[in-house]
Each structure stands twice: as structure tokens, then as C-alpha cells.
Design a protein around this nucleic acid. Structure first.
Length: 162
DNA sequence: TAACCGATTAGCT
DNA sequence: GCTAATCGGTTAA
């Protein structure tokens, strides 16, 4: 998208019954997107300065989403480096905040459909996917809903098994 | 209108 | 590897 792209190598799942999910406390102006149509983008900020990219993905009920935590840069490395002010490819998308900065994702993208510009969902086949505990949350930490590609060095953090 | 809180990151030990 | 600092939105009164 926007001249940059990559493979999603790390995600985390959240749904409406998840205490760690924004949708847990019920619909609010910010998370209403999560209760909207699936296959849309939910962007929110963390710590006031970081943006996090989510895909709305219902899990049998409204309020589900998948957080994209890490991306393996494949296209637009130059552009990403420019935005991130980092030359190390590994540092471009190895984290939610970094990822959004590299892709220039902002609240402007909140609520947009995944099959519309500037997004482009490529039919990639994930291989060697492993699950593990989620990161950076204070509730339901032990719920192993973090998924990622085993062995990828573009993960924000290595997986237990991998 | 004011207070709170965070799904992180950067930097130092 | 661990600790502290960051900023703005969301929530509540």
C-alpha cells in the first residue's frame, strides 16, 4: 500500500469477550469500527503517540479484531527507511508502532475497507505459524492468541517455541 | 472540562 | 535485559 508492502508475520487476536480488547467494555466512539463490518481497518493509538493497525475480524460476534504487530518489509524499503529514519530493515516493522509509522498508517485509515486503496490484501500463505502469549497487555496475558511466523527475524519478539 | 491510562519505544545498565 | 518517559485520546463527572 502507498508504495510499501510486506508480509504480515505477527498478529494478535482480540474479541469482544477478551478483557484485553478495546471492545470488551462495550462500544465506544473509538472502537465502533470493531463492531462494524469485518474486513475493515481499525486504527487506534497507544501511549498517545503510537498507532496500531488492526483488521476487523468478527469471531462469531461483533467486536473482534486482529492486531497486526509485525511486518516483513518486501516493498518500499526505501520509503519505510525514510519514514522511520532507520536503515535496519529489521527495525522498520518489528512492532505495532513502528509498523504504522513505516506504512504511514494514521487515524485517517480508521474504518477503511481492506479491499480498497490504499490497502491491498495479498493472498499470502503463512508457513510455520506458531502461537504464543500476547504482549504488552495487562489482562488475559496468558491467553495464547499471538500468532506469527516461526523463525522470522522481523517479529517484535521471538516466540517461545520458535 | 479534567483526569486517567495505555495492545510502546527508546535508552541506559 | 530492564526501567523510565512519552502524548493524546477516551472516559467520566
Amino acid at each position: 500500500m502507498n508504495g510499501v508492502g510486506g508480509r504480515i508475520v505477527e498478529t494478535e487476536a482480540y474479541h469482544h469477550e477478551d478483557p484485553a480488547s478495546h471492545s470488551f467494555s462495550g462500544p465506544t466512539p473509538r472502537n465502533e469500527v470493531m463492531f462494524g463490518p469485518p474486513a475493515h481497518v481499525y486504527v487506534y493509538r497507544s501511549y498517545g503517540i503510537h498507532w496500531c493497525l488492526n483488521f476487523v475480524c468478527w469471531d462469531g460476534a461483533p467486536g473482534g479484531a486482529v492486531l497486526v504487530r509485525a511486518l516483513e518489509p518486501t516493498d518500499g524499503l526505501d520509503l519505510m527507511s525514510e519514514r522511520r529514519l532507520a536503515s535496519d530493515p529489521r527495525a522498520l516493522c518489528s512492532g505495532p508502532g513502528k509498523l504504522c509509522q513505516a506504512l504511514a498508517v494514521t487515524r485517517e485509515h480508521n474504518g477503511l475497507a481492506l479491499d480498497r486503496a490504499p490497502f491491498e490484501l495479498a493472498p499470502g500463505s503463512a508457513q510455520g505459524v506458531v502461537a504464543g502469549p500476547r504482549i504488552g497487555i495487562t489482562k488475559a496475558v496468558e491467553t495464547p492468541w499471538r500468532f506469527g511466523e516461526a523463525g522470522s527475524r522481523f517479529l517484535s519478539r521471538p516466540f517461545p517455541q520458535a
